[in-house]
Design a protein around this nucleic acid. Structure first.
Length: 280
DNA sequence: AACTCGGGGTA
DNA sequence: TACCCAGAGTT
């Protein structure tokens, strides 16, 4: 849930989620439609599918217990380099090189001397993080938590609290006079309003709110006919792609993509609904 | 290495 | 507006 999603938004969802599906086996046998509804507006709903698949894999391959090795963790759906390391360090107290966006920023500033790290994670950053991590299990796990918390609470992206930073004295960025971000303006800020991405999200939201299969007309209403209206995110402004034919084509792409990704299914009459598997 | 994939809160 | 957020998977 925390992958690319702020902690404050994840926490309430996570709490109710864990209360509903406390063990991997509980999530594994849940109705996928319920899982996607519980995921709500966290974004990247494919993560919800991977999480349920992960729960099923944990049950099948590891007897319901989250594995303790990097290779076994990485083999699970939705578990990448960061998440595997985070589980090893935070859940099991093992040495692991945990590098999330917070740690990247801390290293970029204190050692690299730049305001923010480059848009993409580089091999050089991985090498630095590996070299700087303590050797022992307990020490490395503590370092992982400390560096991440420093980035999340003090060395923040927007307004870093350097006056409260325990390593302000050895920070290369601070020493250099806190120069501005080199990549400012070069980061490709993703458009949202009127995009295929927003269309996918709108369709998913419609499916989540429906009790059963949704007629295509409902989706057309939700996407095509709402364009530029007060109900649209554009707050009444005419979107770039207000052309009806274009919006309809966009809707078709979104539906096809959602089906391709396993986030939606069509019944024999062509109505769209959230997937039922593996529960019923 | 470059893409794609949500959505919301904030300066 | 333009960012930024405890990334992963595919091409």
């Amino acid at each position: 849930m925390l992958q690319q999603t702020p902690v404050v938004r994840v926490e309430p969802v996570w709490r109710s989620w864990m209360e509903r599906w406390p063990e991997p086996a509980d999530l594994a046998r849940a109705d996928t439609a319920d899982v996607l509804r519980a995921w709500g507006r966290l974004g990247y709903p494919r993560r919800a599918l991977r999480l349920q698949e992960c729960a099923a894999a944990v049950v099948e391959r590891h007897d319901g217990a989250v594995p303790r090795t990097e290779d076994e963790l990485r083999a699970l759906p939705g578990i990448g380099e960061y998440t595997a390391a985070a589980v090893l360090a935070f859940a099991y107290g093992r040495r692991a090189v945990v590098v999330d966006t917070n740690v990247r920023r801390v290293l970029a500033r204190t050692i690299g001397g730049t305001a923010l790290p480059a848009p993409s994670y580089t091999a050089a950053e991985r090498a630095l993080a590996t070299a700087i991590a303590p050797a022992g299990d307990a020490e490395a796990a503590r370092w992982a938590a400390a560096s991440m918390e420093l980035g999340a609470l003090v060395c923040t992206a927007r307004s870093p609290r350097c006056d409260a930073c325990p390593v302000a004295g050895l920070c290369a960025w601070r020493t250099a006079g806190s120069p501005p971000d080199e990549h400012a303006g070069r980061r490709r800020t993703q458009a949202w309003h009127g995009t295929d991405r927003q269309c996918r999200g709108r369709v998913m939201a419609t499916l989540r709110e429906a009790d059963g299969p949704v007629d295509r007309g409902v989706l057309v209403e939700a996407w095509v006919r709402s364009a530029g209206t007060a109900a649209d995110d554009g707050a009444g402004r005419t979107p770039a792609r207000s052309d009806v034919a274009a919006r309809l084509a966009q809707l078709d792409r979104a539906i096809a993509g959602l089906i391709e990704d396993g986030l939606a299914e069509q019944d024999p009459s062509g109505r769209l609904h959230l997937p039922n598997a593996p529960g019923n």
